[in-house]
Write a protein that binds this DNA or RNA. Structure first.
Length: 266
DNA sequence: GTTGCGTCCTGGACGC
DNA sequence: TGCGTCCAGGACGCAA
């Protein structure tokens, strides 16, 4: 489940392979989630960016090729004909250097768009997305401002991408644990929002440093990340809390599995 | 406008 | 061994 560190890892690996390459041909699965991939045919890639969990591939014709990896999406670099027979291949782009970019997605939760730069009306999450967590002008007071008055649980708010971009289920659990905040709460103080932003930055930076978290399907162009070996909260329900020694609890919050420590997170 | 829930989708884990 | 059921979850659409 690619979140900001995983998408950023992939972006960094894609950049040298894609920039200045022209897309000679493209193909896709028949689902409308993927058919926009074909619209990039003929364009040249100017840059490979990222916004939250979305890869933003800037084309030279004023448009962006927007790729969301969903749950199980993987981007690979290849060139062999037999790759096109992969039953889980959802889109591909042939480049002018003879290589091919492949988008594989087993569960088909990923999506591809081609939009005029800055026009995100057709991508609601991108349109309403909060600031990038590592934006130096973004601070705890602003995070609090974006969360105050909301009635949703704090974890649900984080997953919505509206308060801050790029946080998914794994890093939400880890950051809330680090900040000592109960994920089921609906209100937060300025002080705790500041602490939460610090923890979001910390866990995302560590995830990035380790090449992402490889659980089930995620892998970058160059293999698996290692952050899964360092998780202290996510997926550890029933195990011992690293901080207080108590038992971590698991429950479903708004249809998302959630792990937290009832002693440390209040 | 906001909130909460259902849907999409399929491999893997698990129980019988 | 084989079958059926449940679970995982990001984004989006829809109803209230």
């Amino acid at each position: 489940m690619p979140e900001l560190p995983e998408v950023e890892t992939i972006r960094r690996q894609l950049e040298p392979r894609l920039v200045d390459r022209r897309i000679l041909e493209a193909g896709s699965h028949e689902s409308t989630k993927f058919t926009p991939a074909r619209e990039a045919t003929g364009a040249r890639v100017e840059a490979v960016g990222r916004r939250g969990k979305y890869l933003m591939i800037r084309l030279n014709d004023g448009r962006d090729l927007v790729v969301h990896l969903g749950m199980t999406g993987q981007l690979r670099s290849g060139g062999d004909e037999d790759e096109l027979a992969d039953p889980y291949l959802r889109a591909w782009w042939d480049l002018d250097d003879g290589t091919r970019l492949l988008f594989r997605d087993v569960r088909r939760f990923g999506r591809i768009h081609v939009v005029r730069r800055g026009h995100h009306d057709g991508i609601p999450t991108l349109r309403g997305m909060g600031p990038e967590p590592f934006d130096e002008t973004f601070d705890g007071a602003q995070l609090w401002e974006r969360m105050r008055g909301r009635k949703q649980r704090l974890k649900t708010q984080l997953l919505s991408q509206r308060p801050v971009a790029g946080v998914g289920n794994i890093y939400a659990d880890e950051a809330l644990f680090g900040a000592g905040i109960n994920p089921a709460l609906r209100r937060i103080s300025v002080e705790r929002a500041t602490r939460l932003l610090e923890e979001i930055r910390r866990v995302l930076a560590l995830g990035l440093q380790r090449g992402g978290t490889t659980l089930r399907d995620y892998r970058s162009l160059e293999g698996q990340g290692s952050n899964q070996f360092h998780l202290v909260c996510y997926g550890r329900a029933g195990e011992e809390c690293v901080r207080c020694g108590g038992e971590l609890r698991g429950r479903v919050i708004d249809a998302r599995s959630t792990t937290w420590c009832p002693n440390c997170q209040t």
